[in-house]
């Protein structure tokens, strides 16, 4: 269970996250949606203790994120930001092995190696396992980083815009995997996402933010309505039912 209480974060005079309270129970995929600058990524970074809030607390399984030792937290919660270093020449396997760092401090045990192999297998990265990251396509690299956080073997996974710069195929593949990890492996996943249709399609719950506050929170069917989209994104968008799912037609 993740409990967020009255979290506020300012950059200079701008308040990016404004007194947000939210609780996320164990299990399922929660999508954070909103316009650019709504505070989604900042909130995610605060949950993942990459940023400190100016006020408020975040607790993960009762542990205060700001006060818990980094290594302890790294075994319960992982966060993958969108800007990942690609100039570093390490192989996919080496990257995935770093996911075991919180568990073994870098000396891989037999069990660690098994985790690494399973993560690589799960994301079907075997053909690229020994290839350096800088020689992968954007989509493959994204999967490699997801394999690393999967290998970290945490109950909670926070993913910041994992579909950024991915083409249709890789976007669908990545979202499918996220869904699958929540279902098969029992992960609790929070994902920041731009495309409300991807959120509607793959998330169990959508939390919509605007100007640093939560403006809507519910199941996809409750959120993907012309009224809510207008409130969150400020545009008029028709919503159609396609194959039993709501689909926002914002393309035209």
């Amino acid at each position: 269970m993740i409990e967020i209480e009255n979290v506020t974060r300012r950059y200079g005079t701008t308040t990016v996250v404004d007194g947000v309270s939210l609780s996320i129970p164990v299990g399922g995929v929660t999508a954070l949606v909103g316009a650019n600058g709504a505070g989604k990524s900042t909130l995610l970074s605060i949950i993942g203790r990459i940023l400190r809030p100016d006020a408020g607390t975040v607790r993960v399984d009762g542990l205060d994120v700001a006060a818990t030792p980094g290594a302890t937290l790294a075994r319960r919660l992982s966060i993958l930001r969108q800007e990942n270093q690609v100039a570093v020449r390490i192989t996919v396997r080496e990257l995935v092995e770093f996911g075991r760092f919180p568990h073994s401090g870098g000396r891989l045990t037999r069990e660690d190696v098994a985790h690494v192999n399973r993560a690589i297998e799960y994301l079907q990265l075997e053909p690229y396992a020994d290839r350096p990251l800088d020689r992968l396509s954007g989509g493959q690299r994204q999967l490699a980083f997801i394999a690393m956080v999967l290998c970290q073997d945490t109950g909670y996974m926070l993913l910041d815009e994992p579909l950024n710069n991915l083409d249709m195929r890789h976007s669908a593949q990545t979202m499918g995997l996220i869904r699958q990890m929540a279902q098969d492996l029992g992960k609790t996943i929070i994902v920041v996402i731009h495309d409300i249709n991807f959120a509607a399609c793959h998330a169990d719950r959508i939390v919509a933010m605007k100007d640093g506050r939560i403006v809507a929170d519910g199941a996809p069917r409750e959120i993907v309505t012309p009224e809510t989209i207008k409130a969150v994104f400020g545009i008029d968008v028709p919503v159609h039912e396609v194959d039993g799912r709501p689909l926002a037609m914002y393309f035209a």
Binding site: I50, A74, R81, E83, N84, Q85, V88, F98, G99, V149
Partner: peptide
């Protein structure tokens, strides 16, 4: 190596 991968990356791994 982890620090060389960037602050966010290193913090995530504790």
């Amino acid at each position: 190596t982890l620090v060389g991968m960037g602050r966010d990356f290193a913090v995530n791994l504790g």
